[in-house]
């Protein structure tokens, strides 16, 4: 029985990890006052580039790095348009998704129908073989550890560092932050690049670990779910973590409920992860007084006064 629950937990982790990574990236972007709706596109490009490069170089690590770089490159276009030309962020983000999905198909076209061995989970002799917790704590995919470090790191950065404070104040009110001498555009550029890197990484996870092949459309809306998680988590990193895992757990558990033929309608079960996540995160936000609202300058362009 322990083996059964452990196995479920491992599946939940693999489903939650890409959502968590992409959502943490977007969280930083939005905290700096920029709304980038192009997560789905950047994720797709990360997935196809990651798989393509991994196949060409026969190295999954280089593939992952290429996926990150591809996500960043795409986000750089977004930065150029929204920061450089102060274009509408919603329109630019949607365009980025369309561009990204098309570009991903083009990059991956030659690699459709091929598959790779998934990047294996780490294995520490002795520790990973411990009964019960061994595999859960010491035998996960490297991406899992990275996502946890990322979640803690992002929370610590925003809460405890001076740079994090600057980023938050720029997101709250860019005019005041500018008057205080903070570098609004430079900070936002770095935030957007970080978001691109995370989306690219999440994409590479999809095509190199989760289901190790490339196919157009394989992101299947995960970028949009990541975006929604950021909002429903009230822009708080640890709540994003909670939301990603709740969504992952609900997705996997409803499948187990179906497989065990518990007689519930499968349509309702399929909707369950979405409903559960929204309800849970909304309830958490309602209960606490003074829940963090959206960053004040979110979605508005900043043009430095001359």
């Amino acid at each position: 029985m322990i083996g059964f629950w452990e196995s479920i937990l491992l599946t939940v982790i693999t489903a939650a990890t890409p959502l968590l990574i992409a959502a943490l990236g977007e969280l930083i972007v939005e905290k700096s006052g920029v709304l980038n709706l192009g997560v789905e596109g950047m994720m797709a490009v990360g997935a196809s580039t990651g798989f393509a490069v991994a196949t060409l170089t026969d190295s999954s690590s280089i593939g992952v790095l290429a996926g990150i770089a591809a996500g960043m490159a795409l986000s750089l276009i977004f930065a150029l348009v929204t920061l450089g030309f102060a274009a509408n962020q919603v329109a630019a983000g949607l365009a980025l998704t369309i561009l990204g999905l098309g570009l991903a198909g083009l990059i991956g076209a030659k690699f459709v129908g091929t598959s790779r061995i998934a990047i294996p989970p780490i294995h520490i002799p002795g520790l990973s073989d411990l009964p019960g917790i061994g595999k859960l704590v010491f035998g996960q995919s490297p991406f899992f550890y990275l996502s946890v470090v990322l979640a803690v790191g992002v929370a610590w950065f925003l809460r405890r560092t001076r740079a994090g404070l600057s980023l938050r104040s720029i997101g709250e009110n860019h005019a005041s932050a500018h008057a205080l001498g903070l570098k609004v555009l430079r900070t936002r550029l770095l935030a957007i690049l970080f978001g691109g890197a995370c989306a690219g990484l999440a994409g590479a996870y999809l095509s190199l670990v989760y289901t190790p092949f490339w196919s157009p459309g394989m992101t299947a809306g995960r970028g949009w779910i990541a975006l929604a998680l950021v909002v429903f988590a009230s822009w708080l990193p640890l709540r994003v973590f909670l939301g990603a895992y709740l969504f992952g757990a609900a997705t996997i558990l409803q499948m187990h409920a179906q497989a065990a033929s518990m007689g519930l309608p499968s349509q309702a079960l399929s909707a369950f992860p979405y409903i559960a996540t929204i309800v849970a995160l909304v309830l958490i936000s309602m209960r606490r007084v003074g829940a963090t609202p959206a960053p004040g300058s979110l979605g508005t362009a900043f043009v430095p006064p001359r």
């Binding site: 196995s7 479920i8 599946t11 693999t14 489903a15 890409p18 999809l206 989760y210 289901t211 092949f213 196919s215 459309g217 394989m218 299947a220 809306g221 995960r222 997705t251 996997i252 499948m255 187990h256 179906q258 497989a259 065990a260 033929s261 499968s266 349509q267 079960l269 399929s270």
Partner: peptide, 20 residues
């Protein structure tokens, strides 16, 4: 044992269904 993935094409979800 039957799991309805409620999609024609979503590799991640299909893989999760198979794992379950």
């Amino acid at each position: 044992k039957i799991v309805w993935a409620a999609t024609w094409f979503d590799p991640g979800k299909e893989a999760d269904a198979a794992k379950a």
